[in-house]
Design a protein around this nucleic acid. Structure first.
Lengths: 198, 198
DNA sequence: TTTCAAGTAAACCGATCGGTATATCTTAAT
DNA sequence: ATTAAGATATACCGATCGGTTTACTTGAAA
């Protein structure tokens, strides 16, 4: 199910239903029978459109990845391109908004990775690529500053981001993501700038 | 299965087998039949000792919690009680050691929480208590310093810890936990100390 | 007007799920 | 010597798992 592929109305309903159930109940805990009936569709239609449960899982992960990136960019687009520090901090704003609306059960990718233990499952690649992409996003934004060595800082920002995401569902924070944003700011400020001479 | 309860040899084998399988394959992906046969035990013995799969899951989580705390304390005990900063940093050493030996698939508690979606499942309490306990451990160690407001820092250390743990299995770090330890140190140093006057 | 993709309805498949039942054996404590 | 706990072996239970099959209907494009 490629990025620009138009889905049939039934396929759309199936994927929407599966996405919600996979995230809220877990992948293995939800059967195809349940998905089909909740979507108001027969099992045959589900298999005609998606081929197998595994492929439906992959479609779920790919679409969630797309939606998250889109949300992220729409938040970051509000800050001008020549202010990379603010853009980085905006990622944490985007996360807060994302979590409070459609992320009550932690990180969908981390959760899915916990269930997809088979090394060869195609869903794993989607997940790992998503994580690498985010880490690289931090790195490329830091790269716009004149930092001596942006990668270690990008790594810490990424860890901070992931930690915040997985622990958010524990409901133990009073200040939301504000604290993490301050930590992120501190991390950026702690970096050494390139020496201009030579 | 309380902390000091002596298990029968069969029960011991069952729990060991279940722990390894639950962690490596996921909870829902492993059936009681598999656990019993891998442990060299009949299903009846499993049910005689643990009552149900859910109770076996709880025993798994409780024991893993105990082992982790034991490991943590044995690492922290090597640094004197009057050096709380080093004790905090030692938590990150303990984490590195723990992860490289028995944590190749991320955080067992986060993974289990992803699969236990039912709000009433007794395993959820074990997990959430474990996370709260760790956050409080950071807070109490910071409390030994004369900090103005230790809780927000404890929160950030906790997020850092969790982020490192869940992302470790992605195999994208070259320096292991060293970077996170530096971030932790920076966080502690950033805190304001209590004003001595008044 | 024909054709074809998209859909419904419902039965069916072997395998596995968590859990129970019955009957027998071994071993250590009373 | 007797009892009771811990264990084995094995068959069984209804329910659900992912997936397939056959037959029929609908709607829009060629």
């Amino acid at each position: 199910m490629g990025e620009t592929t138009k889905m049939t109305p039934a396929a759309r309903r199936i994927l929407d239903t599966a996405s919600e159930l996979f995230y809220s109940k877990g992948i293995h805990a939800v059967g195809v029978e349940t998905i089909a009936s909740e979507a108001g569709v027969t099992k045959k239609t589900l298999y005609d459109r998606f081929g197998s449960k595994d492929q439906l899982i992959v479609a779920y992960l790919e679409e969630r990845d797309q939606k998250w990136r889109k949300h992220l960019f729409s938040c970051m687009d509000e800050v001008p391109d020549d202010q990379p520090v603010d853009k980085i901090l905006r990622i944490f704003d985007a996360l807060e908004n994302w979590m409070s609306t459609r992320n009550k059960r932690g990180c969908a990718f981390v959760n899915a990775l916990a269930e997809l233990s088979e090394e060869t499952h195609p869903g794993r690649k989607v997940i790992i690529e998503e994580k690498k992409w985010l880490k690289e996003l931090f790195a490329s934004l830091l790269g716009q500053l004149q930092l001596e060595n942006p990668d270690p800082i990008a790594e810490q920002l990424f860890i901070l981001h992931e930690g915040l995401m997985v622990t958010y569902s524990l409901d133990i924070y009073e200040r939301g993501t504000a604290g993490a944003k301050e930590t992120a700011h501190m991390l950026i400020q702690s970096a050494d700038y390139k020496k201009e001479e030579a």
